[in-house]
Design a protein around this nucleic acid. Structure first.
Lengths: 160, 160
DNA sequence: AACCATACCGTCTAGTCTGGATGATGCAAA
DNA sequence: TTTGCATCATCCAGACTAGACGGTATGGTT
């Protein structure tokens, strides 16, 4: 993920990566911001990133891909994973263990509705210039949000 | 999750919990088996579980809910979460960062198809006696698998 | 010119979790 | 009796989490 973000950006500080991630890939794959700093260091030590540090002031570290980094990213990208991940929905966990469906459904509907609105706004604004992969990932996110809404609406009192 | 599993089981050793989780909640919420041992200890220390250890042989530790544990579980269960979790699909991540859709789609379709078949077999066998929450969670899993299949089939060469 | 509010940016820590190795016990078949 | 397999528990290094904390730059106010 870090290599991919840096490829997109050309070059970036960890702090910038944090901002990039927050409004794109972060919607379905999150990491802590502190992690970005250690991960960049690790990747630099492994020779996949080149590090350049400001001499004065904030002494920001800027990273860019090395050719080894580009190669590693490309290798990862061209090896289709068969890992399907997991849903990891806290609401589903509560339901699984016997929570009362109606109030849970209300809470989840509200939250998913917000998320869906956010995705749709983004999609409307960006669908024409987003790279294919990013647009497809967003569309997948939208479809999943719609499914969640359908699921939770089918429970409970059907009033929202 | 641990409290919920132990409530279901009445009493259990961490090793048994591992088995219970693997074929139920583990499908959408996984933890490492080593974690079950430390988590049970932690919960026992917090007074939520009672621990009983065999005197001889394997010296297994068996856990059951204390009344405080029952209360904590019930409190968690009756506080609907607004956390919607995240997708965290490695395949989607590759797609997002520009992977070639066709071969990726093939790999994902195959994996999701297997998972769906597993869920459907389980659903067919257990839908009549499973508690509502567990059945609904399973049905939600099935719906998501179908969505994933639809998504990945819409990419690539459409040949599977 | 001194001050202040706010954004920007990076680091740190304790506790938790991961992946997987390691090793021990019990049981049944050869 | 040995051997092999399933059962069961623990351990470790490294990674990650949640969030506190602290420093730096900028522009506006007094």
């Amino acid at each position: 993920m870090v290599l991919g973000l840096i490829e997109n950006a050309g070059e970036a500080t960890p702090y910038q990566l944090k901002a990039f991630a927050a409004q794109s890939v972060g919607n379905f794959w999150t990491i802590q911001h502190a992690q970005l700093y250690t991960e960049c260091e690790r990747l630099a030590k492994a020779g996949l990133l080149a590090e350049e540090r400001e001499k004065a002031g904030r002494r920001r570290k800027t990273y860019r891909l090395t050719s080894a980094g580009r190669k590693a990213l490309e290798a990862w990208r061209s090896t289709p994973t068969t890992d399907i991940g997991e849903l990891r929905s806290p609401g589903l966990l509560q339901l699984f263990f016997g929570a009362d469906p109606a109030p849970l459904a209300r809470a989840q509907i509200e939250a998913h509705r917000e998320k869906l609105a956010e995705y749709e706004a983004l999609h409307g604004a960006a669908k024409d210039w987003l790279p294919d992969g990013q647009r497809l990932a967003l569309e997948s996110g939208i479809a999943h949000e719609r499914l969640w809404l359908k699921f939770w609406r089918s429970l409970g009192d059907n009033r929202s």
